[in-house]
Design a protein around this nucleic acid. Structure first.
Lengths: 333, 333
DNA sequence: TTGTACGCGTTATCAC
DNA sequence: GTGATAACGCGTACAA
């Protein structure tokens, strides 16, 4: 691979001049510039980005930490981040934390030691205190789907409480009063906020919260399955089911169908996140849209603005969920 | 951030010695080693991976090119690659090609210019000839889900023809003789091979291929939708539908249901790939498993073995699909 | 506008 | 076993 040195030789100019045309910061006469470009072409020269990084102390890479590489939710998030960054000539280094505190910590260490210029992470196991410490470090770090007090400017978040409220309100507006709820793990802030929204809607409509109609699931298909089974086994009376995410809604729907419950006639179901397959399942799932792709874009813009000093970028830290009305909720008369 | 120089100073040894304990290749006396380690601890020293890369001419990163970051198929693939590589202390730089020739080319250029030690790519737009040229370059490159003549050792592939054969054979064994087929874009080698497998199974059972019962889809939900519509509008007689991937199967199933066709009684459907949501849709989709996660692992192992000189790795270039028997195919009497 | 010279933080090749 | 010292390829004051 040709180096800047060989280019300078062939073009008959100095190293510095070649460097100048590569980065075109300083003015170079058109004539010399052309000579350099010709030489670069002839040699098939490509800048060594490693050397550039060392000399400029900027790796042009941003580290991403997600819980899983597969999974529709993270897929949309990564796609949003990558497309925005790629367009700016930056690249992403992606690693996983599997929602586990230790692995998340390790992943972040890994990314920092790789000299990323910034980090965009989605962590679920790490405590707020730890994140605050992290934010004090020399590597700028931004948190997806999370708000941490005192470092709000490093956070991109969804108004999960509003989402939870909207989901349950949808049921209420359709005449449902006996509403079962399958929550996400309450150690996760998202899950907690959604649940709060649920109770808020209930209260607004004057329906008391019934502990019997509550189940804490795991955000996976099995959680929906187990939750509905629990409600059914207890012989409870309910006409609708609100799930804290789409996976659990899908699990519950499968379980319902296997037990002779027709959807949505006998049971209305609503999910949360609007992940890709929610429109594939039957009946098409009514759910709450989580604009995670858009949030990914914004996280990337935040990095562009704060770390790479791009101007003219308007940022936004909080996003709002919205109802996606499909076929899984029926009107009760 | 402390450098190796400060460590050597504090420990009272030379730069070279510090470097030695970092990489522990050469023998260092326990006493000096301890001095160095103490100094590193005290300074909170972390090796600068950029500088290491420049000096050693090895970036410890491998570039990945996938068509999309979202999408279950690529999710599984990336997860397989990343976990294998991460365990070996390597990291992945991921970018996208969107199945477009130009973008794929650009993505690969991007990755190469980032000094990746190797590339693992899943390309659909680039020609075999181009890939052969690429393989001659100085950056080792491996191709996922593709076999290219003369560079078979750079390819990890699935026996798509076998998969296509299995899918159709499943229908035949269940007594179906009028089988409609929705193919993938025939410019894609995978889609082509699956179709060949389909015809092979037909031939084996003495059923002539009927051009009327063939539709070339786009590998997306809409392809399944449009294909089934076409068959139905023509008033054709068929009891089963083989789709070249799960997305199209899902689209077709949705369309069928919307038109009063009960599944699987009136129409049996089989997909291909066994992507996550195939077990979420109703009825649970019978499909052909595409072990893409495993293939990702193997691609990473290939890199580990060939590029990072890890021994004791047994490689395998070709993978076999298998039938996942669920509920979308009914037995015809 | 252009060239010189040094620095970025390591690894690697010699000597000792 | 350990220490100088030269690469690695490029950015950038500073000088010309």
């Amino acid at each position: 691979m040709a180096t800047i040195y060989e280019v300078s030789n062939l073009a008959g100019v100095s190293l510095a001049t070649v460097s100048r045309v590569i980065n075109n910061n300083t003015r170079v006469s058109d004539k010399t510039r052309q000579k350099v470009i010709d030489a670069m072409d002839k040699l098939g020269y490509r800048p060594n980005s490693i050397a550039q990084s060392l000399a400029s102390n900027c790796s042009n890479s941003v580290g991403i930490l997600v819980s899983e590489l597969n999974g529709a939710f993270f897929g949309q998030m990564m796609a949003g981040i990558e497309s925005e960054l790629r367009a700016a000539g930056k690249h992403v280094i992606i690693t996983t934390g599997h929602s586990d505190e230790e692995k998340e910590k390790e992943g972040i260490e890994f990314l920092i030691s790789r000299n990323c210029d910034a980090l965009i992470v989605h962590v679920e196991g790490l405590s707020d205190d730890y994140l605050i410490e992290l934010a004090k470090g020399s590597t700028p770090i931004f948190f997806m789907s999370r708000t941490v007090n005192t470092i709000e400017k490093n956070c991109i978040s969804l108004d999960n409480e509003l989402g939870g409220y909207l989901a349950t309100k949808t049921m209420l507006e359709n005449g449902h009063e006996n509403i079962a709820y399958i929550a996400g793990p309450q150690v996760k802030p998202d899950a907690k906020a959604r649940f709060i929204g649920h109770k808020k809607a209930l209260k607004e409509y004057g329906i008391p919260f019934d502990d019997e109609l509550y189940y804490e699931g795991n955000f996976c298909e099995t959680g929906g399955n187990d939750g509905l089974k629990r409600f059914l086994d207890k012989g409870l009376n309910f006409t609708s089911l609100v799930c804290a995410n789409d996976e659990m809604a899908s699990g519950a729907m499968t379980y319902a169908r296997e037990h002779g419950i027709s959807l949505p006639e006998d049971l209305s179901v609503i999910g949360f996140d609007n992940i890709i397959f929610s429109r594939h399942i039957y009946p098409k799932l009514t759910t709450i849209d989580n604009p995670v792709g858009e949030m990914g874009h914004m996280a990337a813009k935040l990095v562009l603005k704060n770390v790479y000093n791009k101007k003219d970028i308007t940022v936004k830290y909080s996003f709002e969920p919205s109802l996606i009305d499909r076929d899984s909720v029926s009107r009760l008369n």
